[in-house]
Amino acid sequence: MTGQVLLFVHAHPDDESLATGVALAHHARQGHEVHVLTCTLGEEGEVIPAELAHLASDRDDTLGPWRREELRRATAALGVRHRVLGEDPDRGVLSRWRDSGMAGTPTAANPAAFVNADVDEVAALVADVVTELRPSVVVTYDEHGGYGHPDHIQTHRVTCAAVASLPEAERPALYAVLTPRSWALEDRGWLAEHVPASAGWQVPAPGDAFPPSVVDDVVVTHEVIDPDAVPAQEAALRAHRTQVSVGERCYALSNDIAARLSGREGFANLDPETGALVPPPSGASRRTPLLPGAGA
């Protein structure tokens, strides 16, 4: 089946490639129309390359426009379309809201920060995009925003509200990105065997805590498994060079903690009315493809 539309709603440039790069590249290669909607420009991100440190918000504060161009290159590598929420190129407006930074930081108190935006106002803009594109599938984060970032939580909140605002007959299927615990444990074992000490990255220990997006296997009801999509994901992550260092089938952010590029991503349905995960069907024994009627 070809010709379906998918929309992935993310908080910052690079989130699309980190969390859903496999699904994006996979469905684009299948001939579907794949869109990314990014809610902020990630102005408060930490800059990895020393020669680009001047871009940071506490110096030149030009990281946002730089990351907008990184997003263009990354989505081109994945073969998908992209837009930033509230951007207006004709007026020179790159985004409507600013990256909030982490919870408890001074930047999160900025009135222009995305976390402080009116949910109804943002949801209306997201709903406009959904109405325009008419996707069969919308993907965003769970109620914890994957790992607790305020902008990720806000993205979850406004995406659910946007879908809930539509007539029931016009609502697309809504999913959160999740990782089965068994996959996460396998990935840590792989990292211990494949990440060389010379990389200078920390490999998580088997007993280290997982982020909230790692859940019991039974919670994850849908999946995309496509190892052949990893090269496109790697290329997209290399485009985000201010934020990501890329190795062979692995990467690290500014914290230098290694993560695997495993070629698989998990998902579960969200109830747009409540924002909660929809309980898996009773007796379900296997995961199904993210896109109805398509291969995983």
Rank of each mutant, 00 (worst) to 15 (best):
S165G: 15
A112E: 08
A199P: 03
L191W: 01
A127V: 05
H152Y: 10
L18E: 00
P280Q: 04
T288E: 15
L291C: 04
D90A: 15
H12E: 11
D120A: 13
A28I: 00
L24H: 10
A123D: 06
F114N: 02
E143M: 05
T38G: 02
A164N: 03
H144F: 10
S57R: 14
P106T: 10
H149V: 09
R73V: 00
L133D: 05
G275R: 05
P172V: 12
E273F: 05
L253N: 14
L125Q: 12
A296M: 07
G207D: 15
V47K: 01
A127L: 11
P167Y: 01
V9C: 08
A109G: 07
G148F: 10
Q4S: 14
W66A: 12
A25S: 15
E33Q: 13
V224I: 06
L7A: 00
I257L: 02
L237N: 02
V115R: 06
C250Y: 06
L24Y: 10
A235R: 09
N269P: 13
Q30L: 11
R157P: 03
L55G: 00
Q30C: 08
V119A: 11
R72M: 03
H12R: 08
P212V: 01
V34D: 00
N255C: 09
P292E: 07
R96F: 00
D88K: 04
W190K: 08
P49M: 12
D120F: 06
G293P: 04
V122S: 05
L261I: 13
W66M: 02
D216Q: 13
T105G: 10
G45S: 11
N110R: 05
G79E: 00
